[in-house]
Amino acid sequence: MNTTAVDKKVRSRRSLSRNDRFTLSAFVGFPTFVQLIFLWIPALATILLSFTYWNGIRISDIKWAGFANYKNIFLNDTLFYEALKNNLIWLLWFSFLATPLGILLAYQIDRKIKGHKIYESIYYIPVVLSLAVIGIIWNFMFQPGGFIQGLMGRDIGNAVSIWGNYKINTYVIMAVASWRHIGYIMLLYLSGLKSVDPSLKEASAIDGATEWQTFRKVILPAMKPVNIIIVVITLIESLRAFDLVFIIYGSSTSWPLLNILVYQNFAGQGISMKGAALAVILLVLCIGPIIGYLRTVFKEDS
């Protein structure tokens, strides 16, 4: 930092009156206090607690456990691996099916095909619904007396279980989750596409590029920041999945996810801090996408 800049800074700070300095500190201090108390300190506490045994009642009961909770998870917990597998399936499904479909839809709707306005609205509706409502709405499709049961010719009396059928339930859950995710991706991508200079597309069309070439060589590179955000959102959403499956199955272990395991290890069995260790594992998995996001959005600042 050169001297004039320092000089300038000092002067600008000196020009503030005492009152102003108080206001400034309050403006920074109060929100920061809230962030620390409700986010960062609890996050740190969870990381520490993950190395302990504690029933959560008296602070003096906390006993150091070293890596016991982690060992327990990695060595003895089959549910953990099942959850990891399900999160991975979620991730792969979103990455290779749902997200590309959302992008494709955005691309087509951006070309202003017939009826694009109505289609756009329809695809956006699930995005604003809570996952709790989504779970219930899809229950009306799959549960006894639901639409799909009706299609299969089954009434309430002789319905078959779809959520409980382990051969297909993964696909059904993924389809329902995609219902929201595709619209979300489409929304983000569409607004990105609108900011791409139309003359770019025209130029490549005149040069005789096919649509696929135009998309790959012209649009995709122009959309780089949006692309990164979409990758991050896909990763984070897959790792964070909770509400939908929880609504469908309750806290049972029919289709475990990391988040559900963390919740259960706290709500169910309070004796160990295994839940905290699971939460830390989840954090470790999330850190890559979080850093990717921060780097993208802060690139212009630094």
Binding site: Q35, F38, I41, L49, L294, D301
Partner: peptide, 24 residues
């Protein structure tokens, strides 16, 4: 910049990472 970074990153923390201490 660090301040802004801390606030933005806080938004990305998984909720399950903080809920046990917050509950207690």
């Amino acid at each position: 910049l660090p301040l802004l970074l801390v606030f933005t990153a806080g938004n990305m923390l998984p909720a399950v990472l903080v809920y046990i201490p917050v509950f207690w």
